[in-house]
């Protein structure tokens, strides 16, 4: 009866392991995975992404026109304000989250680290992929993200959201104007994209990439919660991951 602690970084995770070992004593294994800053960030960020995607969509394809005087309305203004605010929340969250990757436990680091040179990691990605492809009856169990999830998290979510933050800041700089602190982002990004319209286009495509990620992420979490007999959704609320079979 063993909890499958991710051993790849076990040497410097003694404290974490001891926590895990402690929990081995109880009947149903539960491991403290996500510390409160990670959980808070996750849900705030989820809300920000929801707001960003909805407002972003309507910035690109606005709602039907409103009647009346322009001075009586500010719909696009509010939509854009919400978008920018949520964008800043997401950006600030990302900064905090990166800080916590250093300050927090080993799981706080996973979404920024890709053990690219580890053959074992890729083998386990394959195993996990087989599980999802119904080629295996049982998945391996992991305390944090499984390798496939980690791969998606790093390549799509982390890189993607940093991309969205940088391009978003560059777009924000267009309104903030030359000489603003955001101008730097603009000056760096625009020459890479060729022109402002291209920047808008790739930022827009980025939104869809994140939407697709969210869809898979939510589905996988719900499914794993049910199928792999380890807690997923509640873990992101309480921080504890329960391994149901271990209780037997």
């Amino acid at each position: 009866m063993t909890a499958h602690v991710d051993k790849r970084s076990a040497d410097d995770e003694i404290a974490d392991l001891s926590t895990a070992k402690h929990h081995l004593q109880v009947r149903q294994t539960a491991i403290y995975v996500y510390e409160w800053p990670v959980r808070l960030w996750h849900w705030v960020n989820a809300a920000a992404i929801l707001v960003l995607a909805v407002t972003g969509y309507f910035i690109a394809s606005p709602l039907p026109s409103l009647p009346g005087e322009a001075s009586d309305q500010y719909l696009m203004g509010y939509i854009r304000f919400a978008h920018f605010t949520a964008g800043f929340v997401m950006a600030a969250g990302m900064v905090g989250r990166i800080y916590w990757a250093f300050a927090g436990n080993v799981h706080a680091r996973q979404m920024f680290v890709l053990p690219f040179w580890s053959g074992k990691f890729w083998r386990e990605v394959l195993i996990e992929a087989q599980w999802y492809a119904f080629l295996r009856d049982y998945p391996k169990k992991y305390v944090g993200h499984n390798p496939l999830a980690q791969l998606a998290m790093v390549t799509i979510y982390s890189v993607g959201s940093i991309f969205m933050i940088v391009t978003g800041m560059a777009l924000y700089a267009e309104g903030a104007g030359k000489g603003s602190m955001f101008d730097m982002a603009y000056d760096l990004v625009i020459p890479l994209t060729g022109n402002s319209q291209n920047l808008h286009t790739i930022h827009h495509l980025g939104m869809w990439a994140i939407i697709v990620f969210v869809m898979i992420h939510v589905y996988a979490a719900v499914r794993e919660d049910i199928m792999s007999r380890q807690s997923m959704i509640s873990t992101m609320v309480s921080g504890w991951r329960m391994f149901k079979d271990d209780g037997k």
Binding site: A60, L205, W208
Partner: peptide, 20 residues
């Protein structure tokens, strides 16, 4: 961008439904 994104999201959504 919307057609591309919408198409991808649709394919993924269908995939998810089937997978589920």
């Amino acid at each position: 961008a919307d057609q591309i994104g919408g198409t991808v999201a649709g394919v993924v959504g269908t995939g998810i439904a089937a997978h589920a």
